[in-house]
Amino acid sequence: MKRTTIDLWVGIFVALGIASLFFLAVQVGNLRGTEIVEPYELQARFDNIGGLKPRAPVRSAGVVVGRVHHIDYDSERFQAVVVMNIDHRYSFPKDTFATINTSGLLGEQYIGMEPGGDEALLQPGDTMIKTQSAVVLEKLISQFMFNKAAEGAAPK
């Protein structure tokens, strides 16, 4: 085996390997497009975060504008404190409404931002006051079942 043949093949091999890693990172993983650039921090308090996890997306009008950084528990107010990183390109009014939503019936949970009409903008480190907790499926179902039971009992 000639030296140049070996070098050629090893070159092809390494190029293929790096191409595969690149493919995995860009096409399979979420390296592309959803990168949060120079983020600033916002906080929100929720009564119940459901299954929200760190790194879950923060969306506004369906566009990913940030990610959940970490989740704390405030033991004085008995509430969850969600700290999120928001891309510096985006800013939101003071009265933005933060909700915890689920994508699809069984999909992942994310934070939805619904901007209000306030002139003043949220500054880095601010806390959003208006929030809506996660919908807990079990509660919803049991509520529905009680209502049905009540409806069924009433006519008789």
Partner: peptide, 18 residues
Amino acid sequence: WSQMQSQVDVERDILAGV
């Protein structure tokens, strides 16, 4: 592709595999 990209994390899944 889009479900894959939103669910597969570069650090936690791909880097860990590497």
